[in-house]
């Protein structure tokens, strides 16, 4: 791992100031993604600003929102009673990810901001537009069975590896950010992670000096029937081949509201609005579910290696809808 300087500010302000003053600095919190990035040579920060001890690790709620402090560990969120009672989808997604040890370290914001899953991105000897703009994409035409089928471009077909972000995208979750000077923003998780288009190196909407303070979810969505279904190459401790987050409500036998997102298929958590539209207002019959599943994968552009993901995504979503209804 390349060396770097290190600072541990004890306030958000000083963290932001340090970032503003040091080009090429990076925040580190849980470290579970950042350290592998540095080890792999994907990132080379000159200064690591350790924000792990900032007071941003609480889960709270008010009338409108559930707010998850950016530094809350994945475990702490999953074990939080408010999360469990109001948004079990978040818990289920979190618990399907990584290992207990990693979940004890990884933070809420770090989970969402984790770098793309693509083996070529992590091998600095391979061409990768995301890591090294203009160098090409080794994955296209390479080994791509785990890579993206939706929202990909001819520059990049990486997938986003977070389960938490998939559930958040389904629930219209937002991140609350701050920049030096105090400018605050609210960004939808769904938008925060960018599609690669022609600039896969611009992975997120965050400015380099922007810090996430919390992740918020509107409590109007609390108590929805939900399910998180994930397939992978082994029983556990693996990234999704495909996952689906579903939250819905029924009214007199018809789907009143539906929130659906897919994971493992796209460079960002993939909100499937077409699938939602196919369900809302209808009884959740086999036909309706099948149509929703079909809508979810409209526009897929798979490679030869990952063509199966298109069909699998429809199947996983079918299962998730049924589990949410059960």
């Amino acid at each position: 791992m390349q060396n770097f300087s290190y600072a541990r500010p004890d306030t958000v302000d000083s963290a932001l100031s340090l970032m503003a003053d040091h080009q090429g600095a990076a925040f580190i919190a849980g470290g579970t993604d950042m350290l592998n990035r540095i080890r792999d040579g994907v990132s080379a920060p000159g200064l690591l600003i350790d924000i792990s001890r900032l007071d941003l690790a609480k889960v709270s709620k008010d009338k409108k929102r559930l707010s998850i402090g950016a530094l809350t560990t994945n475990t702490a969120i999953a074990e939080n009673h408010i999360v469990a009672s109001e948004f079990p989808l978040l818990r289920d997604a979190l618990l399907s990810g990584a290992s207990p040890q990693v979940r004890n370290m990884a933070t809420a914001a770090g989970n969402i901001l984790q770098s793309a899953r693509c083996p070529y991105f992590r091998d600095v000897m391979s061409a990768c537009n995301r890591r090294d703009p203009g160098s090409g994409c080794s994955a296209i035409g390479g080994t791509s069975r785990k890579l993206g089928v939706l929202g990909v471009s001819d520059q990049c077909i990486a997938v986003h590896g977070s389960d938490f972000a998939v559930a958040l995208a389904a629930l219209d979750g937002t991140v609350q950010t701050v920049r030096p000077g105090g400018e605050r923003c609210s960004i939808k998780v769904e938008d925060l992670i960018r599609l690669p288009e022609d600039r896969p190196d611009e992975a997120t909407m965050l400015a380099p000096d922007e810090l996430i303070l919390s992740i918020d979810v509107d409590r109007a969505l609390a108590g929805f029937s939900s399910a998180y279904v994930k397939t992978r190459d082994r029983a556990s401790f693996g990234y999704a081949l495909v996952s689906a987050a579903v939250a819905l409500t029924l009214d007199e036998g018809r789907v009143a509201q539906a929130r659906i997102a897919l994971g493992g298929v796209a460079p960002k958590p993939w909100r499937a609005r077409g699938a939602e539209a196919a369900l809302v207002g209808r009884a959740p019959t086999e036909d309706a579910i099948a149509e929703a599943a079909a809508q979810a994968i409209v526009g897929a552009t798979p490679t030869e290696d990952n063509r199966y993901k298109v069909d699998l995504a429809a199947r996983v979503l079918t299962r998730a809808i049924k589990e949410a209804l059960a």
């Binding site: 302000d13 709270s60 605050r184």
Partner: peptide, 15 residues
Amino acid sequence: VAGAAAAIGPSFMAS
């Protein structure tokens, strides 16, 4: 934002 304020604490409020 209500939640963020709760989470951030006084140091940030003194921005």
